[in-house]
């Protein structure tokens, strides 16, 4: 069963393309759901290093109203050559989307005004409340930031 599920997830891997407004609509519709949104790219070494912590969080919270979303900032033209092979190899449990917004100088501030644009960066959203972190997480710091945020937003 598990092997079949893993095989299925590996072969049916899809990475939908999304815009910032797609993400915002999703946050707005997901009442009581905690979204953990990690901005990363295959070319970003510290991002790749922290991804397993997000995967672990997603696995642990599976069944709870928690969505761990990996927002990939690779160039859309690198999807087939870099992003999909990377994700197939890693077989993460979290959903991955490819961010198609152009002109970063316009959208970075809309994610969070304190963001310099450096990645990794992570946004936590629940019931319209947001917490933004421009930092690299370890499993411990990710878990504690997530738990504190989720448990104190009603």
């Amino acid at each position: 069963m598990i092997v079949a599920a893993i095989l299925l997830s590996v072969f049916s891997l899809t990475v939908p393309k999304v815009t910032l407004s797609d993400l915002e609509h999703r946050f707005a519709s997901g009442k009581d759901t905690t979204y953990v949104v990690n901005f990363w790219a295959t070319w970003c070494k510290p991002c790749v290093e922290e991804l397993p912590s997000f995967d672990m969080l997603a696995r642990r919270e599976s069944g709870n109203p928690v969505v761990v979303l990996l927002v990939c900032l690779d160039a859309p033209s690198d999807l087939n050559a870099k992003v999909l092979p990377f994700l197939r190899k890693r077989a993460f449990a979290c959903e991955t989307v490819l961010f198609t917004e152009q002109k970063p100088h316009l959208w970075i501030d809309k994610v969070d005004s304190t963001w310099s644009g450096a990645i990794p960066a992570t946004l936590f959203v629940k019931n319209g409340k947001r917490l933004f972190r421009e930092q690299e997480f370890t499993q411990r710091t990710l878990d504690s930031t997530f738990t504190t945020f989720r448990d104190h937003i009603r």
Binding site: A41, C44, P46, L73, P104, H105, I108, D109, W115, S116, G117, A118, I119, P120, E134, E136
Partner: peptide, 9 residues
């Protein structure tokens, strides 16, 4: 001033 995606220092 503008912002851009980049690598952390």
């Amino acid at each position: 001033t503008t912002k851009a995606i980049g690598c952390t220092i």
